[in-house]
Nucleic acid binder design. Structure first.
Lengths: 348, 348
DNA sequence: TAGAACTTTGACTACGTAGTCACAAACCTC
DNA sequence: GAGGTTTGTGACTACGTAGTCAAAGTTCTA
């Protein structure tokens, strides 16, 4: 019996109706629509005209049901509007558009395991999944999915499925930022960290540590942990401003750097005169702060492009790449970082 | 014949396999999975156990093909990582999650008509469309879609379909910001506008004009049009700094306000001593700038919730609401705006 | 010019799901 | 205890598409 309840929406014409209009079989319409060979020019024209007239639009659900392929990629995101994550998200959309895939987003709610979002995407139907700005609860992230997964950060264990890792090189970036400050003559560099359950934040801490160790600089204690917000950077900045020997600070993102700048200003410390500050992200406002902020820029477009390319390769049956891919980063030096100030000259 | 080419991915079990395992019919599995009544507890248990064991996951493509409903909403976005748009996007995702819909995103590429993105969403299969941060080329936006459309901004003409408008009240917001500055004693208020093809930008210009007119204040000319970026705000700020009678500036967003602040600082103008500045958005950094920025906050969560509710109502067959919905805004006064400075006192 | 090879077209089918209907069994109601 | 209603279950079907195969027509080859 026909399924035609009252709540059922009108549908557009299908291939069968186009076929009738063009006087051919449904299969021939399928061939024309999909650009398959072995269709005579006249028939192709007739079909295309009918498509035009009827306003035919392919039904992706039917195609997906038949083929088991959706031409859709799911993205799991924390759903924060932070500069990095949102820029990345939009870059992913563009990258998927480029390869003809559509974009489905699932946010993870606080306290919920990532698997919940993955499940939602799988149910909706996706050929692959990108894990953006991932966090974890300490233990390495384990997922179950029957499609390939690309993680933008650390590796993920995916039961039964293939997975790969693509990321901006946060570790190297943090090292570069720290080395920049050390090269200006600072004895050591303090770090305002992001939340420890973010992989990106941990990477930056590690990079900072490595740079200090490599230079033989002492590793100062971490101030209160930030949450990426200017408010948390301000809190950390106040702590640091209270210490006497802080001359260089590397904040895990620009927003926290902004908060720290504010704290230093309120404490009467000049930047970079008394304290040098380096941020992370190169948000558009960075160059227009007072003082303009030295920071590290990640190439989110490159990360997204690479992530999608890797994912598509796996979707099409290729093996998971053995190595992670890291996209290089770039340090932009502005006025907020400068040479260490001479110790107050003795009375002359 | 079975469709089983080599490129075809393995699929999970379907209801039929679950049914076999549980010793019932496929239809009964359907009843259990969808929580329909008239299933005996024992059978329900048996089915649920089989579902668990086999790792059954509903196939949304099949459901959609049958019902013509996707439980998916498409969002058309400009794809800019600006604070407002990205915050809105993520709020939309959450709102859709709340009502059990999934989220599909289509970005409009520069120079391409919005209809292209709409078409992509329709082809992929969505029950409704949200037009976020929309722009137009001067002429009112006309779309063709056979699903309901909610525009977050101005009205859109949708051929054959129903449509509604939900927005933060940018007009009122701009009026409030302007009135705030006038109430501090400024003779008039200058405006740094956003791009004129953004509805939001035009709204703010109109609100500013209305407030000036209502107060009988003269309407100063607009400086160079901004593009929402700090750089463009800086350029406009330099223009304004060169004029002698500028004491109050309302920038169409916080980023441009940041640029303007920088320009004023470089010109030796103090804020708010010489010039008061008000922004728009209340980005997290606004409170930590030097000086902290007076700005207007929009409630994106409320906008998104309302937009999704309205859309769902239309999807479920309801009529399009006749009136647009506007979400109230809130002015946050900080240190960047202050009373007009007394004219330089005559020599005493 | 016979047969092989290719081109063009269509009939048939399956993908996984939920609506419709049929029917048996259990439960009422008076 | 006859008639009616409700409950529980399954058979059958359609949704729109593309793969498979068959068949007729056309061109090429020896």
């Amino acid at each position: 019996m026909a399924v035609t309840g009252p709540g059922r929406p009108r549908r557009g014409p299908g291939m069968t109706e186009v076929a009738r209009a063009a006087g051919v079989s449904q299969k021939t319409v399928s061939r024309v629509v999909n650009g398959e060979p072995h269709v005579s020019p006249e028939v192709r024209d007739r079909v295309l005209r009918a498509v035009q007239e009827l306003g035919y639009r392919p039904n992706n659900a039917a195609r997906a049901l038949l083929l088991g392929r959706y031409r859709r990629i799911g993205v799991v995101s924390l759903g924060s509007a932070l500069y990095g994550p949102s820029t990345l998200l939009l870059a992913l959309e563009r990258a998927m558009h480029r390869v003809g895939y559509s974009f489905a987003l699932a946010g993870t709610l606080e306290g919920q395991p990532v698997q919940v979002a993955v499940e939602a995407l799988l149910e909706q139907g996706v050929d692959g999944i990108v894990l953006s700005e991932p966090i974890d609860d300490g233990a390495p992230l384990r997922l179950s999915a029957d499609v390939p997964v690309v993680s933008l950060g650390e590796g993920v264990e995916v039961g039964q499925g293939r997975s790969a890792v693509v990321g901006a090189d946060g570790l190297v970036a943090a090292r570069i930022a720290t080395e920049h400050l050390l090269s200006l003559g600072h004895r050591t560099v303090w770090h305002i960290p992001g939340p420890h359950d973010w992989w990106a934040a941990r990477d930056r801490v590690r990079g900072w540590r490595e740079a200090l160790a490599a230079a033989g600089a002492p590793e100062p204690p971490l101030p209160v942990e930030g949450d990426w917000s200017p408010a948390s950077g301000y809190a950390a900045g106040r702590q640091l401003a209270g210490l006497s020997d802080v001359t260089a600070v590397f904040a895990a993102n620009d927003d926290m750097a902004i908060g720290a700048l504010r704290a230093f200003a309120e404490a009467g410390l000049s930047v970079p005169g008394d304290v040098s500050v380096v941020g992370f992200d190169d948000i558009p406002a960075a160059a227009y702060l007072s003082p303009p902020l030295t920071t590290v820029r990640q190439d989110f477009t490159a990360v997204a492009d690479r992530a999608v390319d890797v994912l598509i390769a796996m979707i099409e049956g290729g093996p998971a790449p053995a190595e992670r891919t890291d996209i290089p980063v770039e340090l932009t030096v502005r006025a907020s970082s400068g040479p260490v100030r001479e110790p107050a000259p003795p009375l002359r």
